[in-house]
């Protein structure tokens, strides 16, 4: 009976090991964005279009997180003097880039192009990124998980090509 208990312990230990290592390896990096950027104010209240800041959306594969120059275009002088804005102003005045954390990673063997989806496919940003204009603080997780199945589902639904080589390279 005790031998069986040991066996049981081994089995439980094994599964625990698998789970722990799995979570440890896939663990999302814990981070806080340097600035509590509010999409709600920018995109919601002032109705600034996405492309105004994420300038590369229509042009290239990556949407690009805005440079400090983009921020500096408006925030060259503090407008409302909130502490967050002063922080931005500090970066602007020092000509330093804001060290944003990138939460959307596409593996390099996948070719994902924003231009293909937004400029050619005429997709709404909300489809993948959710309603950013409603967010008061930067998102911590991906709205649409970057998984092949998610891409696949959408491609099948819209009868877009599901040829592997269109994305994998």
């Amino acid at each position: 009976m005790k031998n069986k208990l040991v066996l049981l312990a081994i089995v439980i230990g094994f599964s625990a090991g698998v789970v722990v290592v799995n979570t440890a390896v896939d663990r999302e990096e814990k981070f806080t964005q340097p600035i509590v950027f509010s999409h709600a104010i920018h995109a919601g209240k002032f109705r600034i279009p996405c492309m105004a800041c994420h300038q590369n959306v229509m042009l290239g594969a990556r949407a690009s997180i805005p440079n400090i120059e983009v921020c500096g275009a408006c925030h060259s002088t503090p407008m409302q003097k909130t502490p967050q804005e002063l922080l931005v102003y500090k970066y602007v005045s020092e000509h330093k880039q804001i060290p944003w954390y990138n939460i959307y990673h596409v593996p390099d063997y996948v070719y994902f192009s924003h231009r293909r989806h937004v400029a050619i496919g005429k997709l709404n940003c909300k489809l993948c990124h959710g309603d950013m204009a409603a967010l008061d603080s930067p998102p911590k997780t991906q709205f649409l998980q970057i998984k092949m199945q998610n891409c696949w589902n959408c491609h099948e639904k819209h009868h877009v090509t599901t040829d592997c080589s269109h994305c994998h390279r």
Binding site: D108, S113, R115, R116, S165, R169
Partner: peptide, 29 residues
Amino acid sequence: DVSVRPKGVVEKCTFCIHRLQIASEKAKA
């Protein structure tokens, strides 16, 4: 434009298929 292949996979000439993707995308745009 091209991934860096890890160990243990086979690879070969693809007629630079990534260039086709980029070109077709550009033409469509």
